[in-house]
Design a protein around this nucleic acid. Structure first.
Lengths: 345, 345
DNA sequence: ATGAAAGCGCTAACAA
DNA sequence: TTGTTAGCGCTTTCAT
């Protein structure tokens, strides 16, 4: 109909003029401030609709210092992150919580080296109110860059501090990896198992892996190093680790495997070697990835984490921070796990 | 060292004062303008580093009308998009091309109804210079919202126009679904096959599916409707469709299956029914998803699309548009496919 | 080669 | 309840 000569987008001023009030009043209407006559509100709203007015965020930002957007930074190539069975759930929790606060989540990928300066500039340029970081490489320099910029930040998972200047007091949300591992191993003990082995993740690279080993050691502190085999969180790795364990300690009667994916591999090896699960060897996994845990043979007893809740908490921590910038330092949070009993132990 | 009382982030003005030049000059240095004495450039750069100055994008945006960011909108729940075998490649192409132009890609999810107003506001608020839109549901109202906002946009895949006001002349990048299907079926014909069936995608919901059927029909226009079975792009759907086809037309000697995932299901059915592939029934798929196509039994002959290239082109189309806003209307582009011969036909 | 000044579109005191 | 007035931090003529 009205094909407005698309020359220039309407501004607050245009709306003000059209509705015969001041810019302030229009601003008040837009921001839903109470002290405006209902009549005027209606009039202004009409004009806004008629003109198709949309506030210019840059201008608004310039004075409010708020953008209404939060960056989620995935420091991995897309193809890796898309395979991460947890990332989508984290993201869902984040988006839900952010939405409750009217904030928009924007996802950034950090992959090639050339991405760093650009992402840092983006983050530092005031495009977002804060950042949620899934920094996965131990030596990542992004946290440091962000620190310089002074952008509120929350990590997904306890960050592994490099040997350099540790980024002090960074807030994070993590699952209770250590506690979960303890639950798992204690359960195995309660079953009367005495030779309990473990297949670990890459504990020098990921705190989750390190914490799970620590939890294991909390319960069976005097265990032989022979009973610990390190793998890489892959199925194949789990299978191989199990084989090595069996070679070294044929008498083992239980194994705590630090991820479900590795556990599915271990189960395979156990089957090939003719060990019955759980009769001969009891197996407990970690993660409770339903697609895996429910379809292994036998179904996997494993440690559950509420990943969506973790995402939600990350967002909440960040929002708290941005809304009360002067409040006491951020506290990190560790989300409890629970043991899900199936058939493998 | 210098622990600057973190009160306020340094501004252009601070840098100017510190280096004893005017704001204009600092601005010139930052934007790499030529007409500045080298000596001054160095001095200013030093001060910038010292102060840890980062330009305020909001302020810059306000005058330049450019943000250096481009939104990629995925109109699907995270868990669906993360399963899409193509999305990560699209994204990679997009990110690469955008990076060449110094632009940052930000990914937005559009999932729950409540997301629409927020995303529209984000997109319209000037946070980004343009948007790349992925498969919206046929009745999606986002394109219309974006159109009102007047944001440059490119679609991934030819958009299915709703029955309402078609969003006129939207630019898109798509694979040559029709041409690819023709190649596949022609190849089958060249093999001497005469009873060529097809398993289609949901052609009333996705243009890719519709185009692939059309390509099939281009080559065998007089084929019986009995030889066409519709499925849903899933493996299970492909298996069922193949079964239905076999029941109706036991004499078929070839089948063009509109996706590799469905083709893997079809292959399974064929095996169960004792048909040899390709001797009894030749099979051609679509997509060339290596993980699937190379591991089926037998490996799948299929139509390849260069998805990363498609992503790259989307970005390029958008960038062209934002850099030359007054250039002639965007033209869409269709990327050629090629047939990859393996063992199934 | 550099500076002064205007202004982008908005919000936030402060007045009225 | 509403309007006036300053900026927010930057780029960009236009002078010099």
């Amino acid at each position: 109909m009205t094909q407005p000569t698309r020359t220039r987008r309407p501004t607050l001023e245009d709306v003000a003029r059209q509705s015969g009030v001041s810019k302030s009043t229009v601003s008040r209407v837009i921001n839903g401030e109470p002290r405006v006559r209902a009549e005027v509100v209606d009039r202004v709203r009409e004009v806004i609709a008629e003109l198709g007015y949309v506030p210019n965020q840059a201008a608004r930002q310039l004075v409010t210092h708020r953008t209404g957007a939060v960056a989620v930074v995935a420091a991995q190539p897309e193809n890796r992150i898309f395979l991460d069975p947890f990332f989508d759930r984290h993201l869902r929790g984040i988006r839900r919580e952010l939405a409750r606060h009217g904030a928009q989540a924007v996802l950034l990928f950090l992959d090639e080296p050339g991405d760093y300066p650009r992402v840092a500039e983006y983050l530092g340029g005031g495009h977002v109110d804060g950042a949620l970081l899934f920094p996965l490489r131990p030596d990542d320099r992004l946290p440091e860059m962000i620190d310089r910029i002074g952008l509120p930040t929350v990590f997904g998972g306890r960050p592994l501090l490099g040997d350099g200047d540790p980024v002090r007091g960074q807030a994070y949300v993590d699952g209770d990896n250590r506690g979960g591992a303890r639950q798992a191993v204690r359960y195995l003990v309660s079953l009367g198992r005495t030779r309990i082995a473990t297949v670990t993740g890459p504990y020098d690279q990921e705190t989750s892996a390190a914490d799970r080993v620590a939890g294991y050691q909390d319960v069976v502190p005097d265990t032989s190093a022979q009973l610990i085999e390190r793998a890489d969180y892959t199925q194949r790795g789990g299978a191989d680790a199990m084989a090595a364990l069996l070679d070294r300690c044929p008498g083992l009667d239980a194994v705590f495997v630090a991820s479900d994916l590795m556990a599915s591999g271990a189960l395979q090896t156990l089957r090939e070697r003719g060990r019955r699960v759980p009769q001969d060897v009891a197996v407990v996994g970690f993660d409770d990835l339903r697609e895996i845990a429910e379809s292994t043979e036998p179904p996997l007893t494993t440690v559950h984490q509420d990943v969506e809740e973790m995402g939600r908490l990350m967002a909440r921590l960040l929002v708290d921070r941005t809304e009360h910038p002067d409040a006491p330092a951020l506290s990190s949070v560790v989300v409890p796990t629970r043991l899900v009993l199936r058939k493998s132990a």
